[in-house]
Amino acid sequence: MRGPKPSLPIELTADETQQLEHLVRAHTTEQSLALRARIILTANAHPEQSNQQIAQASGTTDRTVRKWRGRWVATHCLTDAPRSGAPRHFSP
Protein backbone atom coordinates (compact mmCIF):
# COMPACT_ATOMS: atom_id res chain seq x y z
CA MET A 1 0.00 0.00 0.00
CA ARG A 2 2.09 2.88 -1.30
CA GLY A 3 1.00 6.44 -1.20
CA PRO A 4 2.50 9.84 -1.64
CA LYS A 5 5.23 10.91 0.73
CA PRO A 6 3.66 12.94 3.55
CA SER A 7 4.07 16.69 3.21
CA LEU A 8 4.37 17.20 6.98
CA PRO A 9 7.59 15.55 8.20
CA ILE A 10 7.79 14.81 11.92
CA GLU A 11 11.07 15.50 13.67
CA LEU A 12 11.17 14.87 17.42
CA THR A 13 13.74 15.82 19.99
CA ALA A 14 15.02 13.17 22.38
CA ASP A 15 12.89 14.66 25.19
CA GLU A 16 9.73 14.63 23.06
CA THR A 17 10.39 11.04 22.00
CA GLN A 18 10.84 9.99 25.62
CA GLN A 19 7.61 11.70 26.69
CA LEU A 20 5.60 10.13 23.87
CA GLU A 21 7.02 6.67 24.56
CA HIS A 22 6.06 7.10 28.21
CA LEU A 23 2.49 7.95 27.18
CA VAL A 24 2.29 4.84 25.00
CA ARG A 25 3.57 2.53 27.76
CA ALA A 26 1.70 4.00 30.74
CA HIS A 27 -1.27 1.95 31.94
CA THR A 28 -3.26 5.04 32.93
CA THR A 29 -3.01 6.85 29.59
CA GLU A 30 -6.29 7.27 27.71
CA GLN A 31 -6.34 5.07 24.62
CA SER A 32 -7.07 7.99 22.31
CA LEU A 33 -3.98 9.81 23.59
CA ALA A 34 -1.87 6.65 23.30
CA LEU A 35 -2.99 6.21 19.67
CA ARG A 36 -2.02 9.78 18.86
CA ALA A 37 1.40 9.26 20.44
CA ARG A 38 1.91 6.02 18.47
CA ILE A 39 1.06 7.83 15.23
CA ILE A 40 3.61 10.58 15.91
CA LEU A 41 6.30 8.11 17.02
CA THR A 42 5.79 5.95 13.92
CA ALA A 43 5.90 9.01 11.65
CA ASN A 44 9.17 10.04 13.27
CA ALA A 45 10.75 6.58 13.18
CA HIS A 46 9.72 5.84 9.58
CA PRO A 47 9.61 9.10 7.57
CA GLU A 48 9.46 7.13 4.32
CA GLN A 49 6.07 5.59 5.19
CA SER A 50 2.89 7.09 3.81
CA ASN A 51 -0.07 8.05 5.96
CA GLN A 52 -1.89 4.92 4.76
CA GLN A 53 0.94 2.68 5.92
CA ILE A 54 1.08 4.37 9.33
CA ALA A 55 -2.71 4.08 9.62
CA GLN A 56 -2.62 0.38 8.82
CA ALA A 57 0.13 -0.21 11.40
CA SER A 58 -1.76 1.81 14.03
CA GLY A 59 -5.16 0.30 13.31
CA THR A 60 -6.82 3.58 12.33
CA THR A 61 -7.64 5.58 9.19
CA ASP A 62 -5.36 7.74 7.09
CA ARG A 63 -7.63 10.70 7.83
CA THR A 64 -6.80 10.36 11.54
CA VAL A 65 -3.08 10.14 10.76
CA ARG A 66 -3.24 13.28 8.60
CA LYS A 67 -5.14 15.14 11.32
CA TRP A 68 -2.68 14.37 14.10
CA ARG A 69 0.42 14.88 11.96
CA GLY A 70 -0.87 18.32 11.05
CA ARG A 71 -1.82 19.18 14.60
CA TRP A 72 1.57 18.02 15.93
CA VAL A 73 3.43 20.16 13.38
CA ALA A 74 1.27 23.19 14.22
CA THR A 75 1.09 22.92 18.03
CA HIS A 76 3.37 20.10 19.30
CA CYS A 77 0.40 18.99 21.38
CA LEU A 78 -1.78 15.86 21.38
CA THR A 79 -4.78 17.24 23.27
CA ASP A 80 -8.14 17.92 21.69
CA ALA A 81 -8.82 21.37 20.29
CA PRO A 82 -11.24 23.56 22.25
CA ARG A 83 -14.85 22.93 21.36
CA SER A 84 -17.35 25.58 20.48
CA GLY A 85 -20.43 26.23 22.55
CA ALA A 86 -21.22 27.02 26.13
CA PRO A 87 -19.15 25.38 28.87
CA ARG A 88 -20.60 22.39 30.71
CA HIS A 89 -22.83 23.01 33.69
CA PHE A 90 -22.19 19.61 35.24
CA SER A 91 -18.99 17.65 35.52
CA PRO A 92 -18.75 14.42 33.49
Rank of each mutant, 00 (worst) to 15 (best):
M1Y: 11
M1E: 12
R2A: 13
G3H: 08
P4K: 13
P4E: 13
P4A: 13
K5V: 15
S7M: 08
S7T: 14
S7F: 05
S7N: 11
S7Q: 14
I10Q: 05
I10Y: 08
E11M: 05
L12W: 04
L12H: 04
L12N: 06
A14V: 08
D15H: 04
D15W: 01
T17C: 10
T17Q: 13
Q19M: 02
L20Y: 04
E21K: 12
E21I: 01
H22F: 06
L23V: 07
R25I: 00
A26W: 00
T29Q: 00
T29K: 00
T29C: 01
T29F: 01
E30M: 04
Q31W: 02
S32W: 11
S32D: 12
L33A: 08
L33Q: 09
A34W: 00
A34C: 02
A34R: 15
A34D: 00
A34F: 01
L35D: 00
A37F: 02
A37S: 10
A37E: 02
R38Y: 00
R38Q: 12
R38F: 01
L41A: 06
L41H: 04
L41S: 03
T42N: 08
T42H: 10
T42A: 15
T42C: 10
A43C: 15
A43V: 03
N44M: 06
A45T: 12
A45Y: 03
H46W: 14
P47D: 13
P47N: 12
E48H: 15
E48W: 12
E48R: 14
E48K: 11
Q49I: 07
S50W: 05
S50R: 07
N51A: 15
N51W: 04
N51L: 12
Q52T: 10
Q52F: 07
Q53H: 10
Q53P: 05
Q53T: 10
I54R: 06
Q56W: 04
A57C: 05
A57H: 10
S58F: 00
G59T: 01
T61I: 04
T61L: 07
R63W: 04
R63E: 09
V65Y: 04
R66G: 12
R66A: 14
K67Q: 08
R69A: 09
G70M: 06
G70F: 02
G70K: 14
G70Y: 03
R71M: 09
R71G: 01
W72Y: 05
V73R: 13
T75C: 04
H76G: 09
C77F: 03
C77H: 13
C77R: 13
T79N: 14
D80F: 05
D80K: 10
P82L: 11
P82R: 13
P82E: 11
P82K: 09
R83M: 13
R83W: 06
R83V: 14
S84H: 07
G85C: 05
A86L: 14
A86M: 08
P87T: 08
P87Q: 06
P87R: 11
F90Y: 10
F90R: 11
P92A: 14
